[in-house]
């Protein structure tokens, strides 16, 4: 069992809450056999009005929400495409909380829905045991940033793992 070194308020204590790492993958429980599916994809786009017009006015999708992007400077719209949502993110070149340095339009992240929080945790452990960079987002989602995924697939896109219905969209693999 692999121990975790933790600190609280600069008090250094050993925490025996364990991360099992007997060998590569061998000590980590298998993930849930079923993967509920893709919850959402996030597209960085140049013109939010035009993108919303395409999805909603032309293709007939529903607009679930539109407002500030939250994690980065910019505005986003969440589009209902039936079994999943598409987040259209127009990153701004100034403003709060942070400016995204690379605002080139692209597929920014794919959010995979897991069956529950425990399933997310198992998949997170497996990613760490496989040597991938893993970060935790604000709503408990696991983020494999583009830097981690680029070496596997050759281009930069984030992968987000979150329990189905864990919260609203908008978690960017960019952050």
């Amino acid at each position: 069992m692999n121990m975790v070194w933790s600190t609280e308020d600069d008090r250094r204590t050993m925490n025996d809450e364990t991360v099992n790492d007997e060998t590569v993958m061998l000590g980590v429980p298998p993930p849930a056999p079923e993967f509920p599916g893709i919850a959402s994809i996030e597209l960085l786009i140049a013109d939010l009005d035009a993108a919303v017009a395409l999805f909603c006015d032309v293709l007939g999708c529903g607009l679930l929400a539109r407002g500030p992007a939250g994690l980065i400077a910019g505005e986003q719209a969440i589009i209902d495409v039936g079994t999943m949502t598409v987040t259209l993110l127009a990153a701004a070149d100034s403003g709060e909380p942070v400016v995204l340095p690379d605002r080139t339009p692209r597929l920014a992240s794919i959010e995979l829905a897991t069956s529950c929080a425990a399933d997310t945790a198992v998949r997170c452990l497996r990613a760490m045991e496989a040597g991938l960079i893993v970060a935790t987002g604000r709503r408990g989602e696991v983020v494999l940033p583009p830097e981690a995924i680029e070496g596997a697939i050759g281009w930069r896109v984030g992968i987000v793992l979150a329990a189905a219905h864990a919260g609203d969209g908008g978690s960017s693999g960019e952050l």
Binding site: V4, W5, G131, I133
Partner: peptide, 25 residues
């Protein structure tokens, strides 16, 4: 090349080697 875990409050004692590295990495 970035560590597998970036939680400063809960650091893994024996982290796995980084994998899926790019050519640059």
């Amino acid at each position: 090349v970035q560590p597998v875990n970036s939680r400063i409050d809960q650091q893994v004692l024996t982290p796995a080697p980084r994998s899926f590295l790019t050519e640059t990495h």
